[in-house]
Design a protein around this nucleic acid. Structure first.
Lengths: 206, 206
DNA sequence: TAGATTGTTAATCGATTAACAATC
DNA sequence: TAGATTGTTAATCGATTAACAATC
């Protein structure tokens, strides 16, 4: 019998569970419960138990969940019990900030290279990186077998760059450009658009 | 009879409709259809019609939707037919990038001030702004009647700063810190955490 | 007019929650 | 043991879709 696929909406919550558990672990905590996690995240305890039960039995009745153990299990499920190398495309302000961001490494990610197409940016240093020519992007990403890209180019170039990334073998794109991207089904895309997030709140303001 | 509240998940899609329509308008387009919008966004045409019908009748049978008119209507619904002034809290790399970001103004937002607590940052210029002392934050935000803040401080300070923002009258927070924020029900929060977005994709990678 | 597309209803589908036996 | 909390089932709730009359 074919296992039913895990719903996307469940997968979407797992990183929040993991982040919360890692914060607890940093505070020296050893165990937690679905109730405590739920209260912290604004999610029902039943939902957390149900989500986790899709993947196995990670808790103990009467006790709850062992934090280091659940971190290990969730990291494995999410494929972040390893470090993914990433390419940043676009060396503007945001690309710059991402390349220097220190928060990725503990969570399974590392920026490996950054590209731009503007001659005045190519060769410049950003943190530990030298901005590379976008003309070499496909070859370099393919040679390094990089599968994840963060796209930080102007909206009008986003689709063309995406097509190149796919050609280079990229399978996951975190898109900072305020446009949808057309990709084949085996490529995943997530979007970050601050204005969209802000507009989701202004509806509720007077 | 009490009108049923519009579901949050519907509100969440409206900014995507608006963004798409604005892109179409820039291209000189005059009309579109629920089908075209749906194909572009990866949403069913029926859902788009149903979402819009919660707020009124904006289309014409046989023709579709007039783009400038629908932009106007959605802008009004989302309260972005005005410009919201925002405060940026934290003048690190990301705060820096946000303060200089040019993409807000067309979408209803404008950065008005930026704060930091580090003496070496206070007084420095970022774009057109001078970094202000976080000690003055509550008074300055309250005096300017700013209702929206972008929170770009280290995780360990996020809750304490949030408490101050609420004291200052802020009603919507875009949180870049990788932690949940505890806020009263009248305050809205949206989260941006690149590592969470990345982990939502690595699940699907080998 | 004929073709296209809306707005809306009813049916379907899927996600969340409540409840509880099992058991640490 | 008594209290706590899991994993799971069934019930509920809510969101999505299909279909079509209305009409531009």
């Amino acid at each position: 019998m074919l296992d039913k696929a895990i719903p996307d909406i469940v997968i979407g919550r797992l990183p929040l569970y993991l982040r919360t558990l890692q914060t607890m672990a940093e505070q020296g905590r050893q165990v937690t419960s679905s109730q405590e996690l739920g209260e912290y995240l604004g999610i029902s305890a039943a939902q957390i138990r149900k989500d986790l039960s899709q993947f196995g039995e990670f808790g103990k009745q009467g006790t709850g969940y062992n934090i280091p153990y659940l971190i290990e299990q969730l990291s494995e499920i999410l494929n972040v019990n390893r470090t993914w190398e990433m390419a940043v495309i676009g060396a503007g302000d945001i690309g710059h900030a991402i390349a220097r961001y220190q928060g990725f490494i503990d969570r399974g990610f590392k920026v490996k290279m950054i590209f731009d197409s503007h001659p005045e940016k190519i060769g410049k240093k950003i943190g530990e990186f030298v901005v590379q020519d976008a003309a070499d992007m496909v070859a370099r990403i393919r040679a390094a077998e990089i599968k994840i890209a963060m796209l930080v180019v102007p909206a009008q170039h986003a689709q063309a760059v995406t097509d190149q990334l796919i050609e280079a073998g990229v399978r996951a794109i975190l898109n900072y450009a305020p446009v949808m991207l057309n990709v084949p089904p085996e490529v995943r895309v997530q979007h970050i658009d601050p204005a969209v997030h802000l507009q989701r709140m202004t509806y509720y303001l007077d």
